[in-house]
């Protein structure tokens, strides 16, 4: 080992061990946030590097808008509200729910590669991989909602409750999307590969998005299905978003239900994902 002389110069230059450049001077929580942000940054860059994936993942929800607006919409009665205004909040929720497939697939892909192994040997927060993945998907959802709003406007969708009504609706949507992302993160951690993850999420997504008030009024469904459709998170979030964006109805109760579902799901799903992550790595 090198000996350092009084004046600070190394007496044995050639064998002096390098000094680590690792910093220590912040609290664990602030490092956890910084690490989460660093991984978020990495995931967002990855999204911009695969622009074709972003492009084609936007096409599917646009097709759904056109399909329900012009093909099925004429046959669906929505008393007191134009169908396009009824439809768009449902499209928003469906799009972010399906978008969470990306969370599951991305995480499953990460886990099967060497990068996570390296992360585990670094002095970084353990939570950063999950926080970074879910936060990057939250940012992506902001963009997706803006894009869908634009497409909605082109086919006649209008916000009747002012800009703040719209913003509040977006807030409800984003909170829900964050909760869903943690759930799908767990699926991603359980899957052996990105492809498997994709197959695993569909049986969860289909009933939740279609057996809901997203596209048709729940009252038109048979009684047994209504019982499910009325008491599941997608319906709650769609109802709240619709009330906030369209106005004309009391917003308190639906918003409360949506918040309760989203916060409840987040409180249950995030710890499950974290526990699963600790076990997986």
């Amino acid at each position: 080992m090198a000996t350092v002389t009084v004046d600070g110069t190394d007496s044995t230059d050639s064998t002096a061990p390098p000094t680590s450049l690792v910093g220590h001077e912040r609290s664990a929580l602030s490092w956890a946030l910084a690490d989460g942000l660093a991984v978020t940054w990495r995931n967002l860059i990855a999204i911009t590097r695969i622009p074709d994936a972003m492009f084609f993942s936007s096409i599917q929800p646009i097709m759904f808008i056109l399909l329900f607006r012009y093909v099925f919409g004429g046959a669906i009665q929505t008393p007191g509200i134009r169908y396009v205004d009824y439809l768009m909040p449902g499209i928003f929720v469906q799009t972010i729910a399906f978008g969470a497939i990306g969370t599951a697939v991305g995480l499953a892909d990460d886990m099967s590669k060497g990068l996570i192994e390296r992360f585990r040997s670094l002095p970084m927060a353990r939570s950063a991989v999950l926080v970074g993945r879910t936060t990057a998907d939250l940012v992506r959802n902001v963009w997706v909602i803006i894009l869908m709003t634009g497409v909605g406007y082109l086919v006649g969708f209008r916000v009747h409750n002012g800009f703040f009504g719209y913003l509040a609706g977006v807030g409800i949507l984003l909170l829900f999307s964050y909760a869903v992302a943690w759930g799908f993160a767990t699926i991603g951690l359980m899957a052996s590969s990105g492809e498997t993850a994709q197959l695993m999420v569909f049986p969860v997504l289909m009933p939740l998005t279609f057996a809901s008030g997203a596209f048709v009024p729940v009252a038109t469904m048979p009684g047994w299905l209504q019982a499910f459709a009325r008491n599941q998170p997608v319906t709650a979030v769609v109802d709240a978003t619709r009330a906030l964006m369209n106005g004309g109805v009391p917003t308190g109760e639906p918003v409360f239900r949506a918040l309760a579902w989203s916060i409840g799901l987040l409180c249950v799903l995030a710890p499950i994902a974290v526990a699963r992550y600790r076990k997986a790595v």
Binding site: L21, V22, G23, H24, R26, W31, A34, D35, A38, V39, W41, R42, R118, F119, L122, P123, M124, A128
Partner: peptide
């Protein structure tokens, strides 16, 4: 740069 950030380098 990512590794620099995650190792908490100044």
């Amino acid at each position: 740069r990512l590794i620099g950030k995650l190792t908490h380098m100044p």
